[in-house]
Design a protein around this nucleic acid. Structure first.
Lengths: 335, 335
DNA sequence: CTGAAAGCGCTTACAG
DNA sequence: CTGAAAGCGCTTACAG
């Protein structure tokens, strides 16, 4: 077994209380005995048992973080932002991939609760009513990242997805496009998808373009997904001149499909993406997209959570971080 | 405060010992009282405190995992493999990004030790002598993923990097290339980089090609890194006809640079990558590369670690998983 | 089949 | 300034 506090106490000829005090930098320890303890610690190679400490302190310094799938570039950056600030404030993260599966979400929530996580970060596209109830009931501090709760029951940090979709659709309209396709998620009730659709429709209606339901196609959030969707899109009798895809991977797939059937992008078909995936400036054509500050979303979420825990201030509201249209080569002005 | 075992004991009119027994499915409990306890649990919404349990059981069911940077696509898949099998066996992972920084590595090791992780997964390119000593001293079970220890002190799962580099260099040679550049890591002592260089040189020497030191260029493992390195490569008086990059991101950057100066890939310059990044089949030209089973590396590592913990069998050796050359469009036969 | 009690490794009032 | 003791929430021999 490892050395424990009792062992160093014996070694230093003091009580465990004293050892604990020097460990935790509690000031009222005599300098000389402090040194003796310190020596004993060094000599024995003692490392405090954080589990025992957590049990006593009712605080684990660990957060649970749920994301749909770490394999997706987007989430990767958010997680990195989270972990970096956690590291600064001495927190660690338990990482879980939910695949947006409600079963897994509930299971992991329970794990976080049982493992006494000090807080939870939920990153994703959508938060079910069920889960939010379970979370608020449990009374763990939580922050949502990359999405928000429309009813503001829990704090969140994300872009304004409605606005972002509006802006980008408007950008297409300003470039003369009137027939604009919309490549979205299979998951009908995805919060982010819904918000984005709102913005898309709002933009169309703002200039009196009628919404064509054939132009909304649902598929996977992957390159292949975009590829397949563009295939369908191109089979429409009255095909759009531009398409907005809900992430850059889809946009890339859509571009490739268009090219595969002999169209040129953007000459014959404009495509716009979402998220500013790191690859988007390196493919040909480079992809016009709307950037989210993904790292910041993670970092701010974590910071918010830490603040909540330390100050008991649950006066946190949703905060929107700015998005930005990155103009590159995949959109043509057809006016 | 939350409800604890004592509360459900009172509620069910039994001792905490009995509650604990039904919680842990220990068979010798009367069916009727088991039901009473179960009801009390349901009624109170009791959730066991895993921290308390861990303290008693000396086992946390959590692993620490260190990776250089979750933001890199390669590691993402490894982590997903790890998490998926951990989930099956009821483990969770504490995820840490080290940036391959020795300070962070040591800090995180201590965190894992203090938080009583049952085991550690170390994923990366290189493991310093220092760290391996600290790890073996601590006696935590560990498995290395994506790299291995040349002295076999700790178990690992990875491809045979030497072989992989040999194979891919040989492939270039078989396609008539004699002047072959090598785009590698800045980190001189990276285990993976060293192994790969060995294979590269071995392939050259196997056909009597003299190694040209100018052809080895060190830079960042990113698209931009590859871009910059190709720039240097092209300024060589006697430039190579082909280049092997140590990941696909570098390969992509190298391709873009070549194109930017008016060369065609692969007609004027062949480029080959590593890892089979998901984008590589979607860019133009598609990138010839050597695939590693990254998900499997993660999954197998985790499985190995779990086995070690449960069977006390530290008879684990390094295992090599197969790599595979994926032939696409970025290499030209110039014979 | 069930309960009382010790103990996992810490922290912290309380007393001196 | 320091120590003895209680307690965090569990599990599990031991006794009955």
């Amino acid at each position: 077994m490892n050395v424990k506090i009792k062992d160093v106490a014996r070694e230093a000829n003091v009580s465990v209380a004293t050892v604990s005090r020097v460990l935790n930098n509690i000031p009222l320890v005599n300098d000389e005995t402090k040194k003796r303890v310190q020596d004993a610690i060094d000599r024995t190679g003692y490392k405090p048992n954080a589990i025992a400490r957590s049990l006593k302190m009712q605080r684990t310094n660990t957060f649970g973080i749920m994301i749909p799938d770490i394999t997706q570039a987007y989430y990767t950056q958010v997680v990195r932002g989270v972990e970096d600030v956690c590291n600064i404030y001495d927190y660690n993260i338990i990482l879980c991939n939910t695949d947006s599966d409600p079963i897994k979400e509930h299971t992991y929530l329970n794990v976080f609760l049982e493992k006494q996580c000090d807080g939870i970060l939920f990153i994703g596209k959508s938060l079910s009513e069920d889960l939010i109830l379970a979370i608020t009931n449990s009374r763990v501090p939580i922050v949502l990242g990359a999405l928000s709760d429309s009813e503001e029951r829990v704090p969140s940090v994300s872009i304004n997805n409605d606005e972002a979709a509006y802006d980008i659709t408007k950008y297409l309209i300003d470039n003369g496009h009137k027939k604009i396709g919309f490549l979205t998620d299979e998951d009908e009730i995805s919060y982010v998808g819904i918000e984005r659709k709102k913005g898309y429709i709002r933009a169309l209606e703002s200039v009196g373009i009628e919404v064509n339901n054939d132009y909304e196609l649902k598929g996977k959030y992957t390159i292949k997904g975009g590829y397949d969707l563009m295939d369908k899109m191109l089979k429409l009798k009255d095909r759009p001149t531009a398409v907005v895809a809900l992430n850059d991977e889809m946009a890339l797939g859509a571009i490739r499909k268009a090219e595969d059937v002999g169209l040129k992008v953007p000459e014959d078909m404009s495509v716009i993406g979402f998220n500013n995936f790191s690859i988007s400036e390196w493919v040909k054509p480079t992809i016009t997209t709307v950037a989210q500050p993904m790292y910041d979303i993670g970092a701010i979420s974590a910071r918010m959570l830490i603040k909540t825990i330390n100050n008991k201030q649950d006066e946190n509201k949703s905060i929107f971080v700015p998005h930005e249209i990155i103009i590159r080569d995949s959109v043509k002005n057809i006016e």
